[in-house]
Design a binder for these strands. Structure first.
Length: 490
RNA sequence: CGGGAUGUAGCUCAGGUGGUAGAGUACACGGCUGGGGGUCGUGUGGUCGCAGGUUCAAGUCCUGUCAUCCCGACCA
């Protein structure tokens, strides 16, 4: 049992914080809301990045990089967009410091004031659309399918490691198309890329849907999203894909000549996922002993711990393990042999449990005699004895089983926590229980706002492939054509 | 951004009414150990978040500031 990890039951958000710090994923920094992603946390992020990048390229996208700074004038061109982000922008006003003439330290050099302030990007639509204007003349220049991996800054009031930080890492795709249908197809396609990745790779089940107008991206006509449910019953938006219509094209005057020689505005999309996925990963699978990682994302999938007394015994084990390592690496398993003499076996067990390594192999003199090893799973903490000669195939299928089991477990939990309600009282009760609440809504922003005010719950999404079935709005009793999912959210 | 709390050794914290800085843990060295964070001994380690102020004297009192946590508002 971990020493200082707060149990989930006693304080879920403290458990989360403790876990992030103790599992060596990230730490707070000296700058408000900005985190240090530590090597172990970053290794997991790199796994996420690598797989997503692969999937983006499989769907025809290419990577590029745009500047961190956005001139203020660009930023203000799309009205809804400004409205949405203005309150949380970091602004660069000067470009030089000087020694404090009145004492120690260093001060801003007031003579070095920028003519036009620069905004640190909270997202890159504006600078990218300003660029696309130069890239697009003809239908032959379309589509543009660009992604960038970057950091962005949003001056958040209340931050939490990975879930909401002032600076975060993400990717943002920005595409431009000749037709509306093509752009809508793209936005939906990317939602599926996200959904499939999160389910298959992160073992996190998602609900795919669209946002209500209240929750829609500033400047978008439609926001598609994947929503997930955390262990404490709160929802977490894991990714979004926006159909931008011609809003940004019009704001930045991005026109092209079509096959008939007519001038048209291009159609756009943007889509992104961020280091917030790390938060989703942590909160979906982990337990009171620490992190639980799905094998596909674990930087180390298998750790081998020798148990011995004296150097002689260790040397014997080293020789046996050497062969095991070769066998496991040959079939593509990320395995680590921790034969450090500076830590004891019990300490190591706890350490790798805290860090969520999916499989632990312990090998000692007793095993050598019997020709076996002890194999322990992180997800359900079970242990078994496995014959040495069977080990590689056993581990391979075990990793697959763990990946699958983690998904099934969270999927069951998600489904068990979608509550269907038809009146206001049970609506409130269901929200207090946690989870998604499926209810009718009259489709107006006013009603959604009122519900938010009364319950702190928002519409997380209107599920795609939702059953169209008439009903009455949970609050107003007005007619509604389908159910939507409400929840309290991160 | 409003309310509350906190900031002292790497970490967790103790230090009434101002008077030479403490513990546990971690770390270093050594012994016994080793199948779930072992144990005994010795030792290293602190401009008390930062900047001012009051005072003969400030970890302690005052002002400001930065950061963290909790509650609220905000959060494409």
């Amino acid at each position: 049992m971990a020493k200082n990890l707060t149990p989930r039951k006693s304080d879920y958000s403290r458990w989360y914080n403790d876990l992030v710090i103790q599992a060596d994923l990230a730490d707070n920094s000296g700058v408000r809301g900005c985190m240090i992603i530590k090597p172990y946390g970053f290794a997991i992020w790199e796994k996420i990045q690598a797989e997503l990048d692969h999937r983006f390229k499989e769907t025809g996208h290419v990577n590029a990089y745009f500047p961190l700074f956005i001139p203020k004038s660009h930023f203000s061109k799309e009205a809804d967009h400004v409205e949405g982000f203005a309150k949380e922008c970091a602004v660069v006003t000067h470009y030089r410091l000087k020694n404090n003439p009145d004492g120690p330290g260093i001060v801003v050099d007031e003579t070095a004031k920028l003519e036009e302030e620069l905004i640190v990007r909270p997202t890159s639509e504006t600078i990218i659309w300003d660029t696309y204007k130069k890239w697009v003349q003809s239908y032959r220049d379309l589509p543009i399918l660009v992604n960038q991996w970057a950091n962005v800054v949003r001056w958040e009031m209340r931050t939490r490691l990975f879930l909401r930080t002032s600076e975060f890492l993400w990717q943002e795709g920005h595409t431009a198309h000749a037709t509306e249908n093509e752009a809508i197809f793209e936005a939906k396609q990317m939602l599926d890329v996200y959904g499939d990745f999160v389910e298959e790779h992160m073992a996190i089940p998602v609900v795919r849907g669209t946002k209500s107008s209240n929750e829609r991206f500033a400047g978008a006509l439609e926001t598609y999203c994947i929503e997930t449910l955390m262990q404490d019953g709160k929802a977490l938006q894991a990714g979004t894909s926006h159909f931008l219509g011609q809003n940004f094209a019009k704001a930045f005057d991005v026109k092209f000549q079509d096959k008939n020689g007519e001038m048209n505005y291009v159609w756009g999309t943007s889509w992104g996922v961020s280091t917030r996925l790390m938060g989703a990963l942590i909160m979906t699978h982990s337990d009171d002993n620490g992190l639980v990682l799905p094998p596909k994302l674990a930087p180390t999938q298998v750790v081998i711990i020798p148990i011995y007394r004296g150097e002689e015994e260790l040397l014997k084990l080293d020789a046996v393990v050497k062969g095991l390592l070769e066998k496991l690496k040959k079939i593509g398993i990320r395995v680590k042999y921790d034969n450090r003499d500076t830590y004891k076996p019990g300490w190591k067990f706890n350490e790798y449990e805290l860090k969520g390594v999916p499989v632990r192999i312990a090998i000692g003199p007793r095993d050598l005699e019997k020709g076996t090893v002890e194999v322990a799973r992180r997800d359900n903490l079970s242990k078994e004895s496995v014959k040495l000669e069977m080990l590689d195939s056993h581990i391979e299928s075990l990793l697959n089983e763990i990946q699958e089991q983690l998904f099934i477990k969270s999927k069951v939990s998600l489904e068990d926590n979608i509550h269907i309600v038809d009146n206001w009282n049970s609506f409130k009760l269901a929200l207090d229980k946690g989870g998604f609440v499926s209810a009718h809504w009259d489709g107006t922003p006013e009603t959604e706002n009122k519900i938010k005010e009364l319950t702190k719950a928002t519409i997380r999404c209107i599920p795609l492939n939702n059953e169209k079935k008439d009903g009455l709005c949970i609050l107003t009793g007005n007619p509604s054509s389908e159910r939507v999912l409400f929840a309290r959210a991160y």
